[in-house]
């Protein structure tokens, strides 16, 4: 399995990368971690004539709190999220997610920006970023723009960025007090894409669920929020019945395809179970547990 031939560019600055994209509009493909793109190229499912490798853009590698948000440089490797102290202590949903993406070797190369920009509903970060209400920063020839995550995923493998833009940063709002989140993923074996997975981020106000956002993995053609499930939670007192109702709502609103991972019926029910388990864990964490 040998990739087709291509021209290769390795810009040293973001501006250089942007001008390469402009110059080769329609032909150039960005190479980030390459852990999805290179296998696709080996099978010749992808045959980009030009690759713009942005791995030299070291400025795009950081994970730190800035003001009211956690800023993640697009070229941050997944393993850096696993290792990050601030992620571990304050962003448990993100930490949960980073640990179950593919395998440790892949996570040493794969990037957060690539995982999101690929807009693959089977990838894990989209659901998590939806639950976090993240903002994507895209930079193009005319400057920088902020794309709310809810507007980012526009289709299967399609996002709201223009061809000449590069995803540079992801911003996750700092969770308020009494917040908690969790990612629960059901896999056929470790490192596999999810049969179904649920990202939940919520905030409690006393015994009431004051805020809740839920993202789902691999049960729709486009990464999706489980809005009906969120509605079941909002303003409600925590109870098993409420959580069950949210799970059922998610099962109803997701839109999985049948494949080797399971039938539609199975995937819907697993979405129910994953959503419930994530909610339970998120609530426990909001109350100060692990």
């Amino acid at each position: 399995m040998i990739p087709g031939a291509f021209d290769y560019h390795s810009p040293r600055t973001l501006d250089e990368a942007l001008s390469l994209l402009q110059k080769h509009a329609g032909e150039a493909k960005i190479l980030a971690g390459g852990q999805s793109l290179i296998p696709a190229m080996r099978f010749r499912l992808a045959m980009p004539p030009i690759l713009v490798d942005i791995n030299r853009l070291d400025d795009l590698r950081y994970v730190e709190e800035r003001g009211d948000h956690l800023a993640i440089g697009a070229m941050t490797r997944e393993h850096a999220l696993e290792d990050s102290q601030v992620v571990r202590s304050s962003y448990p949903l993100l930490h949960d997610t980073a640990r179950v993406i593919a395998d440790p070797l892949v996570r040493n190369q794969a990037t957060v920006g690539g995982n999101i920009a690929h807009a693959d509903p089977a990838n894990d970060h989209p659901a998590t970023m939806l639950a976090y209400h993240a903002t994507v920063i895209a930079k193009g020839p005319s400057g920088e723009r902020k794309i709310p995550i809810d507007d980012f995923f526009t289709g299967l493998f399609e996002n709201a960025m223009k061809e000449d833009e590069i995803l540079t940063e992801i911003r996750i709002p700092k969770p308020g007090a009494n917040s908690g989140g969790a990612y629960t993923k059901l896999e056929r074996k470790v490192g596999d894409y999810a049969i179904s997975a649920a990202a939940v981020q919520l905030r409690l106000d006393g015994g009431t669920i004051a805020e809740a956002r839920i993202g789902l993995t691999n049960v729709s053609a486009v990464p999706m929020r489980a809005r009906a499930a969120e509605a079941e939670l909002l303003g409600k007192s925590v109870s098993d019945a409420v959580i069950e109702a949210a799970g059922k709502a998610a099962a109803g609103e997701c839109d999985p395809s049948p494949d080797l991972r399971g039938t539609i019926e199975y995937k819907r029910d697993m979405t129910r179970v994953m959503v419930k388990r994530s909610i339970h864990k998120a609530i426990a964490r909001a109350k100060g547990g692990n």
């Binding site: 290769y8 190479l31 390459g34 393993h79």
Partner: peptide, 19 residues
Amino acid sequence: CTVLVDGKPVKSCTMFAVQ
């Protein structure tokens, strides 16, 4: 195909030599 690149183990079939 695992090798260490700058100390980190990665799969050398999923990286171009030029990188």
